[in-house]
Nucleic acid binder design. Structure first.
Lengths: 192, 192, 192, 192
DNA sequence: CTCTAAACGAGACGGTACGTCCAGTCTTCGG
DNA sequence: CCGAAGACTGGACGTACCGTCTCGTTTAGAG
């Protein structure tokens, strides 16, 4: 085979990691298997990512870069929230296994943890500023809720509940769950 | 050494597992090390718990059995909620590493998942029925909130948010966080 | 199951050992397997035979006790020798595996070694006195050989050669080999 | 420790195997112990020799490669034979334990068996052609025996008897035994 | 357009742990 | 007391990966 280098090799490695990840799951993923899948040597892998979580993280990132995604605008608070929750659930569906496993791999390692959180779930601040605040701003402008000035914790609470559920069940949220998050958590919390 | 059997041996094994867990963390815990710590053979370990997660789960359980704990009664909704969240945070403090790691070990394994959830976080239904509902009942009786008839998802949302935080940060919640959970999530959600 | 004791139990154990020996061979025979085959406990086995070679030896002995066997009398030295060699080859056929393995199990252990040799190959002295000497006596009387006064080593040499071959090949001797032992070793040696 | 490779490592492994073999004997030799003695991992051992007998065989071979050894020439048939038997006895002295054990490890495995036989006892054909035939040729030329044309079985018979004795007793032959092999078996058989 | 330095691929190295099997001892219970 | 059952400490099995390390080979890119 022609020898690969640079970006082409990086991509091949991350693709291989993704393939192995899908095939055997995070726990059973070995550097050895990824190197074999990519038909290269472990050396090449370790040169780039010194540990499994970092490799997997990069692979997930490579596969599904954190989409900045415009906030949904469906015309109603309920619609916006549901749309965003559904979007998040879908996007995390095939990542949640790796993501929750990654969390476990270096408990208390704040640096990695933060990276995981950012890449898998999005930066809290970004989400608040870019997604949730616009949604509640519009809802307040429409008069659906009394005020758009909500504490960060209040704003993110519905998402946290949904993420907790995702981690716990390791499968996408169904419609009933989405409804419950919106109707029983988000709307009452936001004052709708 | 005198040969141990039955309950005495079970206890020794689980204690050893706990010691190793504290020493090296979940990821680095090996059956081999636990057996060595307990001065017995791997055989004896595998006879009882066929896999690492099951052993660790049992060890955690053994160390800190899910305390049924009476609902706190401080005289105010705010006090009750804060007391319970603080209690939960404390109780999970040294378990959360193992717990979140356990979640990762068999993603999608509902049976184990359920056991983990039960033992580490308490059964949702039990918590609702035994803890949260009494708290809101009393709050409603005192007139702090308009109604005690809240959907299960609404009731548990504050706890889920707190648990999510616990898993993410892998450290106990501080006072500021507890305040935020109570004031920015629970109270508005319950209609206080 | 009805509880067995005494001779009945001994027999059951040795039969079980034999069965296992035939099934998996000496090297793979474990006390555990024999106990299981006999549906009893290892204890019972160890009480009687403290080690694998002793058990196997007893089992072989039990199956095929060293037959004192009259010396063959075919009317000619050649016939007698060939008959005895063939008899020995047949009798050792299913024992030679165990026998040669047993030799290996305690090299340098004279006691066991002697027992093995006796039971598997017959006592040299007995064979000389009971089998070979009568054969050569009759041959000398018939005038086939000049004298019946041969050193022990000379007498047993043909048998040793045959036994060595048996151990080396671990299979019964064929007719050609038997002919060679008689015609190229025994007869010239005995002076025929 | 400096990392070893290639021949240096091979040698270290075989030396370690030899050391362990001398220390505990064949039956008690474990791959684990050899790896430990060589301060390497079992992996490295198994990569080269997939099983204990093969390792031990290589170790024996490594220690005492089958010496092609010129046939002794003492000027008399008796002297030549005695010299060769003594040489063989000495050379096998510290190998016979392993050798006879090896025979037992794969009874009926012709391939291994053949290798064992060759390395430990010398190839029959080679011995006949390279050692025994020259000896009897010279003896015939000197007029000590009537003919040098003896069947292979006749030629090797004295050696087989000696080897059988070696295996059985697992110790070197003493002078009396050597005398007996020469005087009571070899010389009469060769017609001296 | 050569020469050189870096990266690639291949795979061995010293280790750790896996999960299984058996050795030989000991305990418990029932007959 | 002894048979049956089975658990105990101990240790080796053969396998899989770990992260490190040579060792040639290939490939840019600098002179």
């Amino acid at each position: 085979m022609a020898r690969r280098r640079g970006q082409a090799l990086d991509d091949a490695l991350l693709d291989a990691a993704w393939v192995v990840l899908q095939r055997v799951g995070y726990q059973a993923l070995s550097m050895e298997a990824v190197a074999a899948e990519a038909a290269t040597s472990k050396n090449v892998l370790y040169r780039r990512w010194p540990s499994r979580p970092e490799l997997v993280l990069a692979a997930v990132y490579h596969r599904a870069p954190p989409s900045p995604s415009d906030p949904p605008d469906t015309g109603s608070l309920r619609g916006d929230l549901r749309a965003y929750l559904a979007f998040m659930s879908d996007r995390l569906a095939d990542v949640v296994d790796a993501a929750s496993s990654l969390l476990a791999d270096f408990p208390g390692n704040p640096q990695l943890l933060d990276t995981v959180r950012r890449s898998a779930f999005g930066t809290p601040i970004d989400i608040v500023a870019d997604i949730l605040q616009p949604i509640v701003d519009r809802a307040a402008a429409r008069g659906e809720i009394p005020t758009a000035s909500l504490p960060a914790r209040t704003l993110t609470a519905p998402l946290d509940v949904a993420r907790f559920q995702l981690i716990m069940s390791a499968r996408p949220l169904d419609d009933l769950q989405l409804d419950a998050f919106v109707d029983d958590v988000a709307l009452p919390l936001y004052g709708a």
